[in-house]
Design a protein around this nucleic acid. Structure first.
Lengths: 337, 337
DNA sequence: ACAAATATGTAAAACGTTTTAGCAAAATCA
DNA sequence: TGATTTTGCTAAAACGTTTTACATATTTGT
C-alpha cells in the first residue's frame, strides 16, 4: 500500500520551497518570476512521480470544493435522470463534480440533505425544491452559496430558476384535445400546491373555460404506482362522461395507461390521452401517446451554466435570472380521432 | 452574508479548549472524563449556534471523506438509475454520500474519472467497469481503496464484485423460447468482449446446441438508438427464417421493437421476443415483452454493504466476495404462442 | 499528613494546501 | 560607486479539524 506524495515531498526532494512548487503548479510561475529552468525541473518531477495535489487541503484553504450539489425528486425518474445526465456532462467539462440525491419530494428529507451538502461545502446547488424548504434555501443564499432551482420555483425565494412555461403548455395541450373533438376532458394531477402543478392546472382551466367546456379535475394523492392506478381506474368508472384525460405528469399517465389497459378501454376512440413529460414508453406504446415534451437538455444547460457563471464571479449581481423555456407538444395517436 | 462558525469560536466563547470541544462532539467525553456539566454546556451552545464541523478539515485530518464514488455506464439508463437510487438510499442512512458519473463505457473517460475521484479522496468505489481499466483499478486497490465491481467483473482483477448469473439466465430464456416452439432464434448483442456479454452469449449457445438448433448471432456496434434500429431492421430483412430474437440488453430490445413496429411485424406470431433487463416499457408494451429481470435492489444492496463493511475494518481480509445473483424470467406475451 | 490515584482538562502537532509579505543577490542607473 | 530596481525565491500564517502527550487540581488511602 503506497503512501500518497505531498507537495512537501516534492519540495524536499528537489531542494526548493513549497511555495515555489505551489506557484509553478498553479501556473503563476511567470507572474512570480520563477526561472524557466526551475519550472521545467519541477514540472518534470511532478510528472514523473505522478503527483496530484490533495483537493481536500486545497479546498480547506481556498474555501472552494468544485463540487455541485444536485437534488432532484427521484434520480430514477426518466425526466430527472435525463437532466442529471446532461448536467453532469457539462459540469465535468469545467472541472466540477456532481453530488446528487433524491429528495422524494419530502420536505424533511430535503432539509436534512441540504444541511449535509452544506457541511460538505458544496460550492453551489441545483435543486428541484419540494414545498417548505424556503428557509433552508434562504440560509444558503445568505451564506453566499448560489442556488439554481429547476422544474419549479419557490415564490418566496428570490434566486435564479429555470422552468418551462407550464401554463401555456397545458393550455396548448388542452386546446389540442378540444380541437380533436373531445369535450369532457379530465385533468388528472397530484394533490400538490407546487407552482408548476398549479400552472398546469390553470392552463387546463383557461382552455376549458374559453371553450365553454365543463372542468373536471381529479387529484391523486400519489403514494405508489399501484395505488394511483386503482384510483384512476375508479375515477374512470365513476365518470362515464369523460372522453379524454390530460395527465399532469408522466408517472400519473403510466398509472393511467395501466388502468385503461386493465379495463380494456380503447385509446383514442373511447378516451383521448395526453401527458406532460415525454418518455420513451410513450413513443412506443400502442397507441403512441401525445405528450408535452420538456427540453431536458436545455433545462440542464441553462441551469448549470447559470450556476457556474455565479460561481465564477465572486460579486453576485443581484439580478437573478428567471428562465422560462417553451415546451413542444408532440402529437401522437392517443389524442387524434 | 454570515460567516461560518468554527470549533475555535465555540471554544473561545465558552472559555474552554478546542480539544475539549472536539472530544465532547465526538462522543468521547466519558472516556476522556469530562464533567457532565461541561458537556451539557458545550452541547447546548453548539445546538444554539447551529455549529456543524467542517467535513473538509475533518477529512484532511482523518483521511476519510465518507464519500463513495459510483461509476455507471449511463445514469439515465433505467437499469443503472434504479441501482443508483437504491445505493444512494442505503448509503445515506450510514452517513455516506455518493458522487456519481456516467462512464459511457469509454475506457479513456473512465480512467480520467477514476483519477478525478482519487484526487477527491473518495473512500471507496462502486464501478461498472468498461474494458481496459484494469491498471487503474489495481492502483486503487494498491493504495488501500476498496473497489466493488457491479454488473460485470474484470477477470484480471481480484476484488469484490456482484453480478447476475448471466449464462444461466440466457440459457433459461433461450430454453423458454424453444419450449414455445421457436426454432430459428437469433441472439442480438453488442460487439463487446465484456464477460457479462460473453456469458449471455454462451448461455444462448448452450441452449441452442443442446436442442440441436442453428445458432444465429448478430452483433451490433451500438452507436445510437437510431442506427441500432436500422441495423436490426436490415438484419430481420435478410434473415427471413428467424422466428424469434433474444436481445442481450434492454436498449437493444427497444431499438428492436422500433424496427418491428416500422416493418409491421407481428409479435409473438411472426417473431417471438425476449429481452435482458426488465423495463417499465416492456410491461406496458403491446404485446408485453418477456424479460430476464435483474434484481437491481439486491445488486445495489450487496454492493454497498460489501463496500461499507470493507470501509469499517481497516484490516482488509483478503477474501474477496464474488457474489452471483439469480435473475428471474418474467414471461409475458411476446414469447408465447 | 503525605504519596498515590483519579478527575478534569489543555497545548501543540499534524493533515496538505494557498498566499502574503519579504529577503538576498544580481542587474541597472545616475 | 552607491542607490535603486529587478530577479528569483522562501518563511510562515492560515484554513478547521483530530489526537497525542501532558498538566493541574482534587480525592483517596494509609
Amino acid at each position: 500500500m503506497k503512501k500518497k506524495i505531498s507537495i512537501n515531498d516534492i519540495a524536499q526532494q528537489l531542494g526548493v520551497s513549497i511555495t515555489t512548487v505551489s506557484f509553478i503548479l498553479n501556473g503563476r510561475a511567470q507572474e512570480k518570476r520563477i526561472s524557466e529552468k526551475l519550472v521545467k525541473k519541477v514540472l518534470d518531477f511532478v510528472q514523473e512521480v505522478n503527483y496530484k495535489p490533495s483537493s481536500l487541503a486545497r479546498s480547506l484553504r481556498t474555501g472552494k470544493t468544485n463540487i455541485i450539489g444536485l437534488m432532484v425528486e427521484d434520480i430514477s425518474d426518466p425526466f430527472f435522470s435525463a437532466i442529471a445526465r446532461a448536467i453532469e456532462a457539462i459540469a465535468y467539462q469545467s472541472g466540477y463534480k456532481i453530488i446528487y440525491c433524491s429528495t422524494e419530494n419530502a420536505t424533511e428529507k430535503t432539509r436534512e440533505l441540504i444541511a449535509m451538502y452544506n457541511e460538505r461545502h458544496v460550492d453551489g446547488y441545483i435543486i428541484v425544491p419540494p414545498e417548505g424548504v424556503e428557509q433552508d434555501i434562504k440560509l444558503l443564499l445568505d451564506t453566499g452559496k448560489p442556488v439554481v432551482l429547476i422544474d419549479r420555483y419557490l415564490p418566496a425565494i428570490d434566486t435564479d430558476f429555470v422552468v418551462v412555461d407550464n401554463e401555456k403548455s397545458a393550455y396548448d395541450a388542452t386546446c389540442h384535445l378540444i380541437a380533436n373533438g373531445y369535450k369532457n376532458i379530465a385533468f388528472v394531477t397530484i394533490d400538490s400546491l407546487q407552482p408548476q402543478m398549479l400552472d398546469r392546472l390553470s392552463g387546463y382551466e383557461k382552455a376549458m373555460q374559453e371553450n365553454g367546456l365543463p372542468q373536471l379535475v381529479k387529484e391523486i394523492a400519489y403514494k405508489s404506482s399501484e395505488q394511483a392506478m386503482q384510483h384512476i381506474a375508479a375515477f374512470i368508472d365513476r365518470k362515464k362522461e369523460v372522453d379524454a384525460i390530460f395527465f399532469a405528469t408522466n408517472y400519473l399517465c403510466v398509472s393511467g395507461l395501466k388502468a385503461t389497459a386493465v379495463k380494456g378501454i380503447n385509446i383514442p376512440q373511447n378516451i383521448g390521452v395526453v401527458s406532460f413529460d415525454d418518455y420513451e414508453l410513450f413513443e412506443l406504446y400502442s397507441p403512441s401517446i401525445t405528450t408535452v415534451s420538456q427540453p431536458t437538455d436545455k433545462i440542464a444547460e441553462h441551469a448549470i451554466n447559470l450556476l457556474m457563471s455565479r460561481l465564477k464571479k465572486a460579486v453576485s449581481d443581484k439580478k437573478f435570472q428567471k428562465i422560462i423555456l417553451p415546451t413542444s407538444l408532440i402529437v401522437r395517436k392517443s389524442s387524434v380521432r
